[in-house]
Each structure stands twice: as C-alpha cells, then as structure tokens.
Design a protein around this nucleic acid. Sequence first.
DNA 1: TTGATATGCAGGCAAATACCTGCCTATTAT
DNA 2: ATAATAGGCAGGTATTTGCCTGCATATCAA
Lengths: 106, 106
Amino acid sequence: MDDDKVFKALGDPTRRKLLDLLYENNGQTLNQLIDGLAMTRQSATQHLDILQAANLITTVKRGREKLHFINPVPLHDVYERWVRKFELQRLTMLYELKKELEGDNE
Amino acid sequence: MDDDKVFKALGDPTRRKLLDLLYENNGQTLNQLIDGLAMTRQSATQHLDILQAANLITTVKRGREKLHFINPVPLHDVYERWVRKFELQRLTMLYELKKELEGDNE
DNA sequence: TTGATATGCAGGCAAATACCTGCCTATTAT
DNA sequence: ATAATAGGCAGGTATTTGCCTGCATATCAA
C-alpha cells in the first residue's frame, strides 16, 4: 500500500463523498456519480483517477460506460497501521499524565 | 469530530511522521520533535497547529517548554465512520460482480 | 449513416499549501 | 543583570490542488 496516496486521496471531501456514493450503490458510472456532486464531469474524473491511483476504487469498462467499484483493502490497511496501534493507548492515561505535568508549574 | 480537519491533517506525510514520533515517545517538546524531521522549527509549528486543530494532539505548557501528546480519539472515530463500515463488504464479492460484468462484453 | 450519449485529454487559473526568513517575547541559567 | 534557550508571530514564495472551458474519441440507437 502507498500510505501517502491513500491518505491524500481521503484528504478531500469530494473524494470521500464519492466513496460514500459508491458505498450506497456500488458499480456506478461516471455520469451517475456526478448527479450526487456539484461539479463538472471533468473534475469528478480527476477525483476518481486519484482514488484509483490510491487503489481505493477499481473500474470496469462496459461498452461506452465505465463502472466504479470500491476496494476496501487500503482502508483496512489504514486501520491496521494507523488506528489499531493508537487504540491501545487510553485517553485517561494521557489525562493523568497531563494533570501531573500541569501540577509542576501551578 | 470534524471529519475534514482530521483527514486533511493526516493527508500530509510530515504530520503523520510527527504522530509517529509522539507514538514512540509521547510528551515531546517542539525542539525534540524537530530532531526527527528535516525542516525549520517554524514549519513544524504550523504542522503541529494543524494536528491540534484536528484534535489529534493536545499540548501542555511547562515553563518555557510546550509538551505534545497524542489524542487517539479522532483516529478511533475515523475507524468507526470510515473503516468499519467497509469491512463488511468482502473483496471477493466485488470480484464476482466484476467478473460478471466483464462477461457482458467479452 | 447520423445524431445522441459516455467518456478522454489538454491547458488555464485562482486558491490553498508547505516551505522559508526575519524578528519578537518568555523563561531559565550563570 | 545578562546570555542562552524555547517558542510565537508575521510576511513572502514556489508548488500543488481543485476547478473550469474547449475539443476529441468511442459507443449506441434510430
């Protein structure tokens, strides 16, 4: 997985919206997806290209149409490498440490 | 949680590096964090401000020092809202659908 | 075949981003 | 008090980004 491509792809609200639209109805065409957005077809295409480069979607051509599908694998990788390791830390531990340090100068 | 701030904060490799550094050694000062990077103190400060605005870190002043701590809560929220729901979809299901559609025009 | 539909490709532009330099303030140590 | 240390604040700039317009190509339907 390319960490950077995935995070950058997720860093834009339009691209997250596209993933949401595909989650609701997988396999949509470009024109179908545009209906859920407020921008030109060309702009949406650029976003979809970025999602595909990050491997967050795959496409299948059917005649003159291009169907888009979510690939959940990179999202799971994000979870494994970025979320799970932080879940072991308890916020309460941080609070206690914070209070202790604040006590030093008050 | 502000989705957009969190995702944008995570969208930059330097900021992810900062979180990694804090994960290895929580509660570091600005100057300590700079040692792990290749940029000026001022630039690092801007990144840390963005992380704090996204609630991914909290800070505590101790004398002239400023200590930085990870807050794992937004990361967990990302998991809840973005990863878990996609985990229910099996990649194999997508593959089957993809094969079926490819069969339409081949 | 001819028109309509679905998408691809190229370039332009304004705003956001990630750096930087330079200078100022606050705290600590001698 | 004075110097060193830790950090804050204010621009300046080159690059990246997200959006657009305009035109080209490919497929389908009548």
